[in-house]
Simulated assay, not measured.
Amino acid sequence: MPIKPRVLAVDDEERNLRLMEAMLLPMGYEFFKAHSGEEALDIVRETPPDVVLLDIMMPGVNGFEVARRLKANEDTRIIPIIMVTALKEVDDRVKALDAGADDFLTKPVDKLELKARVANSLKIKAYNDHMRSYQKDLETEIAKRTRELELAYERVKDASLDTIHRLSRAAEYKDEHTGDHIQRMSQYSVAIAKEIGLGQKILESILYAAPMHDIGKIGIPDRILLKPRRLEPEEWEIMKRHTVIGAQILQGSDVGFIKLAEVIAMTHHERWDGAGYPNGLCERQIPLVGRISAVADVFDALTSRRPYKEPISVEDSFAIIAEGRSLRFDPVVVDAFFSAKPEILAIKRKHPDTSPSKLVEMAELPYT
Rank of each mutant, 00 (worst) to 15 (best):
K240Q: 13
D214G: 03
M1G: 14
M131L: 13
G63S: 08
G63N: 05
E262N: 05
Y367G: 02
V66M: 10
P233F: 14
A261M: 09
Y277Q: 07
L19H: 08
A336E: 12
L161C: 08
A159I: 06
A346C: 00
D50N: 13
G197Q: 06
G256Y: 08
V44Q: 11
H269S: 05
P356W: 09
L260N: 09
E150A: 03
I245D: 07
L359C: 07
A336K: 01
E195S: 12
A22M: 12
V94A: 13
S313E: 15
R349D: 13
I344C: 12
M185G: 01
R155P: 10
S168L: 08
S186L: 13
P342K: 01
M23C: 03
R349N: 09
E323Y: 12
E364W: 00
N279F: 15
E262S: 02
S317P: 08
E364G: 10
I344E: 01
I202K: 14
Q187P: 01
P331I: 15
T106Q: 12
R169M: 15
G37Y: 11
V333R: 00
P2H: 10
G60N: 08
N128K: 02
V7S: 06
K341G: 02
P5Q: 12
D273S: 09
P228D: 10
F318V: 11
K240H: 01
G197I: 05
T76K: 05
R117F: 04
E13F: 06
H213W: 11
G199F: 05
A116K: 00
P352M: 09
E113C: 02
K123W: 11
D50C: 08
D254N: 10
Y277M: 12
S304M: 08
Y367E: 09
L87K: 02
V298P: 00
V66R: 04
D11L: 11
L97M: 09
H269T: 07
M58Q: 11
L203A: 11
K125E: 13
I312G: 01
A101R: 00
P221A: 04
F299K: 02
G324W: 07
P342V: 06
A191I: 11
K174G: 10
E38A: 15
A301Q: 11
D91N: 05
V94H: 03
V263P: 03
L345G: 00
I124F: 03
I238Q: 12
A9Q: 07
R306M: 15
I249R: 00
E148F: 09
G256R: 03
E361Q: 04
M58K: 07
V360A: 15
I81Y: 11
V10P: 08
E310V: 13
T140L: 15
F31N: 04
G290Y: 01
P80Y: 04
P49R: 04
G37I: 05
S168V: 11
Q285L: 09
K217S: 10
A9N: 03
Q248I: 05
L97Y: 00
L105M: 13
A191P: 07
I238L: 14
D254H: 07
D297T: 11
D75H: 07
L112T: 01
A261P: 06
I78W: 08
V51A: 04
D91L: 08
E113N: 06
A171M: 08
R68H: 02
G256V: 04
R68Y: 10
I320C: 02
